[in-house]
């Protein structure tokens, strides 16, 4: 959540209420479970850590937050870091949304980097499976690992399809 909020601020300074809305929109139906207070608590923490600062907004009763230099560096690092050992779905989803909104990274390229990482892991898993005799219990665990990697790879295919369409339309 911290990283997602930072990435959303990379596009432009906003107040907490707007950030909450955007986060909820990015999460889709899953956003309903998000507590509005969480955004403010997170912003306070980020401010303490020196990653965001308050700016004067158009209305005195609303605090506008902006990224500091350290905050910007943190966003850039987060966007291009490949999740190991496997991506957290929600985090990766928010990362793609934030990359697209902030124009700091190409979501399709982030998907590609993640896919290469997963294929390397699938390579290792498959080689290990082939080294096991058929029907062994050790092989069974590896089979589970391979099936999960395959599911993640399929999801990345869907991500690539949708985000390449979004990016094409926004060009």
């Amino acid at each position: 959540m911290q990283d997602a909020i930072l990435a959303m601020l990379a596009k432009e300074p906003s107040h907490g209420y707007d950030l909450g809305l955007r986060l909820r929109r990015a999460l889709g139906p899953l956003g309903g479970s998000m507590n509005a207070g969480q955004v403010y608590v997170t912003l306070a923490r980020l401010e303490k850590a020196g990653l965001v600062v308050q700016e004067k907004g158009d209305r005195p009763d609303r605090k506008v937050y902006a990224l500091t230099q350290a905050g910007q560096e943190r966003v850039a690092a987060w966007l291009t870091e490949v999740s190991r050992p496997k991506p957290d779905l929600v985090e990766f989803h928010l990362k793609l949304a934030a990359a697209s909104a902030s124009r700091l990274a190409d979501p399709v390229e982030l998907v590609g980097a993640q896919r290469r990482e997963l294929m390397r892991r699938l390579h290792e898993t498959q080689r290990a499976i082939l080294a096991e005799p058929d029907g062994s219990t050790g092989g069974l665990l590896l089979e589970g690992v391979a099936l999960r990697l395959q599911a993640d790879l399929r999801w990345l295919e869907a991500c690539e399809r949708v985000w390449s369409k979004v990016e094409k339309e926004s060009e």
Binding site: M119, L122, H123, Q126
Partner: peptide, 22 residues
């Protein structure tokens, strides 16, 4: 994907072109 993953090197192909060489 599981069969392809057993190779040393993977090329992804789309519409007659190579899009990735890993």
């Amino acid at each position: 994907g599981r069969v392809a993953a057993t190779a040393d090197r993977l090329i992804s192909m789309r519409d007659g072109m190579f899009v990735e060489d890993t």
